[in-house]
Amino acid sequence: MNIIITGVSGFIGENLSNYLVGCEYNPSRLSLRSNWKLANTSDAIIHLAGKAHDTENTSSDEEYFEVNTELTKKIFDEFLDSEISDFIYFSSVKATADTVEGILDEDHISNPQTPYGKSKLLAEQYLLSKDLHEGQRLFIIRPCMVHGPGNKGNLNLLYKVVEKGIPWPLAAFENERSFLSIDNLNFLILQILKDKNIQSGIYNFADDESISTNDLIEIIGKASGRKSKLWRLPSGMITAAAKLGDILKLPLNSERLKKLTESYQVSNEKIKNALRIKKLPVSAEEGLFKTIKSFKNT
């Protein structure tokens, strides 16, 4: 099966491409930085390229809409004029909700508040407004936070805290978060490509279990061979320090504090029901342990 992948140089694109090669598929790179054209001989296109959420808030709103919305429209229009069967668009759970009460599923009424989320949602709405040709399928994938060996970000920040023996000062914040290991993401995409009975639609991607940040700190301690230390400092004091970080451009700012301490649980029941499976191959704890181990090895 010939598969076009945009954004293949990113963390997800590189891992997914290598995984599909190992499964005897034939992924090809499509660079969108110059003149491009979809190959009609392809069976599917996986659109990963996009403008990621900038937690430092240095990007202009226009950048998000130019890349995440308008570029996606152009690629999808090309798809509709082609004989390619499947279009898999990587959106985000942030296209529907910045904060979550309870567990997020695909029936949630979307109301993103950031330019990133709004640009992703506008792209989704455009794709869903178009009629597919017979034999074509459209999958809008909304992954939560993706991680795996080689991936940096907030997990790496937490790892450095534990690895240096620094107590975790945010233990007073109780939360539950959903994560998505790259292994489970790869598995789900492969199943969609293989199973032609799966219907078009929006699908959340997440691991089966949610994990609290305090539990995550414990997992990091086990994976790094260091004893984790949890400090329950007053949450009001931490929130004030984060606001000061907004002004002074410190590592701990309000956006990062929110990411580290808020609850954000995502249901993956719809995609599992579509695939007729009960569990994903890798548990949330196993996936996180593997990712953290990779930090130690590098």
Rank of each mutant, 00 (worst) to 15 (best):
N197L: 14
R232P: 03
E24L: 15
F76Y: 14
N154L: 07
K74Y: 12
F173L: 05
P281Y: 08
S210A: 15
F87K: 06
I3K: 00
I271R: 01
G225I: 08
R177N: 01
L188Y: 00
L193E: 05
S178H: 08
T298M: 11
L155K: 09
L244A: 14
S85C: 10
N253F: 07
P169Q: 04
M145P: 09
L104H: 05
L275S: 04
Y64R: 05
T213M: 04
H108E: 14
N297C: 02
V162C: 05
G7P: 02
G7V: 07
L230C: 04
F295I: 06
L122R: 13
S129Y: 08
S178V: 02
I4V: 06
K227N: 14
N253Q: 04
S110M: 05
K296G: 13
N18E: 15
G50E: 01
K152E: 14
D246F: 04
D207S: 01
K278H: 12
S82F: 09
A44Q: 06
W231C: 11
Y203H: 08
E24Y: 11
N214C: 13
G10R: 03
E134A: 13
D131C: 12
L260K: 06
N204S: 03
T114H: 06
F173W: 00
K243W: 12
E78F: 11
L260Q: 08
G221Y: 03
V21K: 13
G221E: 02
S28W: 00
S17E: 11
D183K: 15
G150R: 10
D246L: 05
S254G: 02
T58L: 15
W168L: 09
Y25M: 14
R33N: 12
F11Q: 11
I3E: 10
T72Y: 08
N154E: 09
K293F: 10
Q199H: 12
I219Q: 02
Q199T: 14
M145E: 04
G221I: 03
N68Q: 05
S85H: 13
I192M: 14
G150I: 12
K290T: 12
A242P: 04
Q125V: 09
S228Q: 10
P115E: 01
S181R: 06
A172Q: 08
K270C: 00
K196G: 04
Q136M: 03
K243M: 13
L288R: 02
N175A: 08
K270P: 00
K296W: 09
E262Y: 09
N18H: 12
L16P: 00
M237I: 15
I189P: 03
S59F: 11
A39M: 06
Q113S: 14
R177E: 01
W36E: 01
F173Q: 07
Y159L: 11
